[in-house]
Each structure stands twice: as C-alpha cells, then as structure tokens.
Measured scan of single mutants.
Amino acid sequence: SMGQARALMGLSAQLDEELDFREGDVITIIGVPEPGWFEGELEGRRGIFPEGFVELLGPLR
C-alpha cells in the first residue's frame, strides 16, 4: 500500500478497469498507473480512478 485516500464524491465506473466508490469511502492506494490516475483497492475490489475524485490522507509512500 502507498497510502490512503478519502473519496470527495462518488464514482460510477464507466469502464471495467475503473473502481466504483461512494463519497466518504476510504480507498487504499496501491499504484499510480499514469499521471492523474490512482489504482486503488476497496472492499476487496481493485481498479483505477482519477485523482481529482479523492483527497489523500497523508503523503504517498
């Protein structure tokens, strides 16, 4: 894990590789696949999402 982030708003996945989450969910960050995107894990599910949907809870490791 690289850190954690809290969802500022919900994301309804449009693509298979995207992660669904609700506002307030705390997501474990597991990677940065490309600039502007995070890869995360939530409730046993993994996927990517735009960084603008979340606030980091501390610096990434």
Rank of each mutant, 00 (worst) to 15 (best):
G58T: 12
D25T: 03
F53I: 12
M2W: 15
D20E: 15
V32E: 11
G47R: 01
E39A: 06
P59V: 09
E51R: 14
S12R: 09
E55R: 05
E17W: 10
L42A: 05
L15C: 13
I48R: 14
R61P: 15
E23Q: 14
M2I: 13
T28E: 14
V32S: 12
A5Y: 02
R61V: 14
E18C: 11
A13M: 06
R61D: 13
L8Y: 04
E17L: 08
R6C: 07
E55V: 07
F49Y: 10
G3F: 07
G31H: 05
D25E: 08
G44R: 02
A7V: 01
V54M: 04
E17Y: 13
F21V: 03
R46A: 08
L11C: 11
A7Q: 04
I27T: 08
L11A: 10
G58Q: 11
G31I: 02
R61Y: 12
I29V: 09
F53A: 12
L8A: 00
D20C: 14
V54A: 12
E17V: 11
F53H: 15
R22A: 11
F53T: 12
E17K: 11
E41G: 07
R6N: 01
G44L: 02
I30R: 10
M2D: 11
G36Y: 03
Q14T: 14
E23Y: 04
L60Y: 06
D16E: 10
P59K: 01
G58R: 10
E55M: 03
R6D: 00
L8M: 04
R45M: 15
E43S: 05
D25W: 05
E39T: 10
E34I: 13
L42I: 13
L11I: 05
G40M: 06
R6W: 09
G44V: 01
E39S: 05
R45L: 00
L56S: 05
E17H: 14
R45N: 10
I27S: 02
S12H: 15
E39M: 05
G58W: 07
G31M: 15
I48L: 05
E55G: 05
F53W: 15
W37Y: 12
E34Q: 08
L8H: 03
L19N: 02
E23H: 02
R46H: 10
L19F: 07
D20P: 03
P59D: 09
R22Y: 09
D16A: 08
L11R: 15
F53K: 09
Q4D: 04
E34R: 14
I30Y: 07
A5G: 11
Q4N: 10
S1M: 14
F21R: 01
A7C: 04
G36I: 05
L8F: 05
L60F: 08
R46C: 12
Q4P: 05
W37T: 14
F53L: 11
L60V: 11
L15F: 14
T28N: 14
D20S: 15
F38R: 11
I27A: 00
R45S: 04
D16S: 13
M9P: 03
I48S: 04
G3M: 03
V54S: 01
I29F: 01
E41L: 09
L42S: 07
L60T: 12
L11W: 09
L19T: 02
M9E: 09
L19Y: 03
V32K: 11
T28C: 00
G3S: 03
E23A: 14
E39Y: 13
G52D: 10
D20T: 14
E34N: 09
G10R: 09
L8K: 12
P59R: 03
W37F: 13
G10P: 09
V54F: 01
G58L: 06
L42V: 11
I30A: 04
L19Q: 00
G58C: 11
V54H: 01
I27M: 15
W37M: 14
E34F: 11
S1D: 13
F21Q: 01
Q14S: 12
A13L: 00
F38E: 02
S1V: 14
W37D: 02
E17N: 14
V54W: 05
D20V: 08
L8E: 03
E39I: 11
Q14G: 13
I29G: 00
F21I: 06
R6P: 07
F21T: 06
R22E: 08
Q14N: 13
R61G: 12
A13D: 04
L11T: 12
I30L: 13
V26D: 12
G36P: 07
L15G: 15
T28K: 09
E34Y: 13
R22L: 10
P59W: 03
E34T: 12
M2E: 04
R22D: 09
G3L: 07
G47F: 06
W37A: 00
E55I: 07
D25R: 02
A5M: 01
P59T: 03
M2C: 06
L19H: 00
W37E: 06
S12W: 07
Q14Y: 06
W37Q: 04
R46M: 05
E51G: 13
L56Q: 03
V32H: 13
I48M: 07
S1L: 05
Q4S: 12
F49G: 04
M2S: 06
D16R: 10
F38S: 00
V32Y: 11
R45Q: 12
S1T: 12
L8C: 06
S12F: 09
L19P: 00
T28Y: 08
W37L: 07
L56C: 05
I48E: 03
F49R: 06
E18H: 14
A13I: 01
L15T: 15
R46T: 09
Q14I: 11
E51I: 06
M2Q: 03
D20M: 06
